[in-house]
Amino acid sequence: MSFVVAKGLTRNYDLSEPLIVRALTMRPKRILTAVDNVNFSIEKGTTYALVGESGSGKSTIAKMAVGLLKPSAGTLIMDGKNLNDPALARNEQLALRRRIQMVFQSPYASLNPRWRVGDIIAEPIKAFGLIDGTKAQFMRVSELLEQVGLASSDANKYPHEFSGGQRQRISIARALSSQPEVIVCDEPTSALDVSVQAQVLNLLKALQKEYALTYLFITHDLAVVSTMANKIGVLNKGKLVEEQSPTGLFSRPQQDYTKMLLNSAPSINFG
């Protein structure tokens, strides 16, 4: 069995008016299915990219994967364990959650502006009780900062003292501090400039090699995942319409929607 498996993942949103209004106006319930029976599986140490436009449900899947949202139906299985099993005790659930962390889209909103960088990175270590002792925790934070290409002295600074790309590095260091096996990357470079985007993508790839990390990479930009996705799933209006390796997808797209996406992506290649 694959390391991460999404089984019939579904999420509905109830957009209905209040019951009393519906009763008076005789209007039916309005249910929006943001994610509709999505299945995929990711092998350990590989990257699965979910590509879609706004409203495709890609962010909803990311949130369900890390447990920020509950699926309306279906489940996510990691390492043979059902993450949405209602029978799990809170501490068991927490232990599972530790193994699947997230890197967020916004380099600005994802770091608490009032916290020092060192405290931000140390928080998961403390919350999960991974390392005891302030000194040892401090050493670990320094190590993580250096791993993502920052200086250990940066621990004393505040997020606003860093550029967008550096903040994304901090965000990656925070995700790593939980010692996760899976990282959900939710458009981690879409707010960055190209030259910095390449730095962050290369860093993510190097870390994946070093720790055999499994990535679920959410993006609207097919080009961004061309160097790192082992498999790409194309989402349209909550449904997974096509799934292929990048080589296959780029050279022999099967669905019209995929073809349209590929054709409309602005390309820097001439001729």
Partner: peptide
Amino acid sequence: STPRIDASSFDKTLYQISGS
């Protein structure tokens, strides 16, 4: 450093300009 939709780019390292 601009990523391209290219079947052959898999597993290549993107060119990066260091610093900011």
